[in-house]
Amino acid sequence: MTYDLSPRPLNPAAPAPAMTWPNGARSALFIGFDVDAETAWIGNTPANVDRMVTTSHGGYDARVGIAKILDLMDELALKATFFTPGWTALAHRDLCKRILDAGHEIGHHGYLHKMPDRTKLEEAFEEIDRGFEALEAALGVRPVGYRAPSGENFPELLAHLAKSGIRYSSSFRDDILPYRHASADGAKGLVEIPVNFAFDDWNFGMTARTSPRPIFGRDAVLQLWIDEFEATHAWGGVTTLVLHPQVSGRPMRWFLLRDFLRHVQQKGDVWIATGRDIAQHFETIERPAA
């Protein structure tokens, strides 16, 4: 494959439009969970399927993590978006139904959590199509939101997602406001609800037995999240969380997340919404200029 390294903005999307949030809110909070379960460990490393201790990290989702996260959302009366690989929905069908029954949004997160690869277009498209099929078979839903497994994307995949009925993505890290992706063929691109890497709990609470990466404690993470949220709030942006039940469903981190969410709720002027609701609000703001 030949790579075009000419100087240009590598994301051709137009700048984010000015944003006002509902109910006079100054900023928004998007609570997103990636329900990877075992796919986080086998999707990109299939040999791990025979390493039961390794995959038990992901097995925590179904045994403990998802239920605890649902308890937390219920306690705080919050709705979230659960980006769910198709494999997870099939392997842990009853537990994933509990997410849906609790009124939360189900998002698309691939089928086996494989990182999208532009050199393997058919494989990347198959991951999307199989994910849809599995979510429909297991849960009876066809998601409108997508978060890229392993956090990667490319133009052809964005186009395939749009043609498949996806309305928004939450993967890119290049803004604090929602924006609309550009499309090479002139079709309407996806709404992007961008992510701040500081709010990915995997960075602080997950490592591997062979990795030198440290795990960070409560005081470091909670203060980081509060400081980053307060600054985003002051700028009127959206704070997008990338959380995993196999991380934030662990005992200490569950209480850490609860304290952070309570801090946000106490502000009183933050719109806490699902990805679907934020995308719909963006479309409403965008419409007069269309």
Rank of each mutant, 00 (worst) to 15 (best):
V242H: 05
L70G: 06
V221E: 02
A77C: 06
P46R: 08
R250V: 09
I31F: 03
D101M: 13
D101A: 15
A290E: 15
R218T: 11
M206Q: 14
E75M: 11
S150E: 15
A102S: 13
Q266N: 13
D227N: 15
D50Q: 13
Y168H: 12
S169E: 12
A134Q: 05
S170G: 08
H160V: 05
M252T: 14
A273F: 03
D71P: 00
N48W: 02
M52C: 11
H263I: 00
A289E: 14
T239K: 10
L157A: 04
D201H: 03
V64E: 11
A137G: 01
C96L: 12
A162P: 03
N153G: 10
I66R: 01
A134M: 04
F125G: 00
S171V: 06
F154P: 00
A148I: 08
L190P: 01
P149D: 02
Q246C: 11
V141L: 11
A137S: 14
G186V: 06
T207H: 05
E228R: 15
R213H: 15
P214Q: 12
L95T: 13
P178I: 03
A40F: 05
L139G: 08
P22Q: 05
H181P: 00
T274E: 12
R180P: 07
T2G: 06
M52G: 13
D259T: 14
A198Q: 12
T39G: 06
Y168W: 15
I31W: 00
P17Y: 04
V195W: 01
H113Q: 03
R8P: 01
G65R: 09
A234T: 06
L177I: 01
L158W: 13
G205R: 00
D259Y: 11
N11R: 09
H104C: 03
S164M: 05
H92E: 12
H108Q: 07
P149E: 03
A148Y: 05
A148R: 06
E192K: 02
D174V: 10
A273N: 04
R262N: 07
W41D: 10
D219Q: 09
L95S: 05
T274D: 05
N153D: 08
V53R: 13
H113I: 06
E75F: 09
G140K: 13
G59P: 00
D129S: 13
R147K: 08
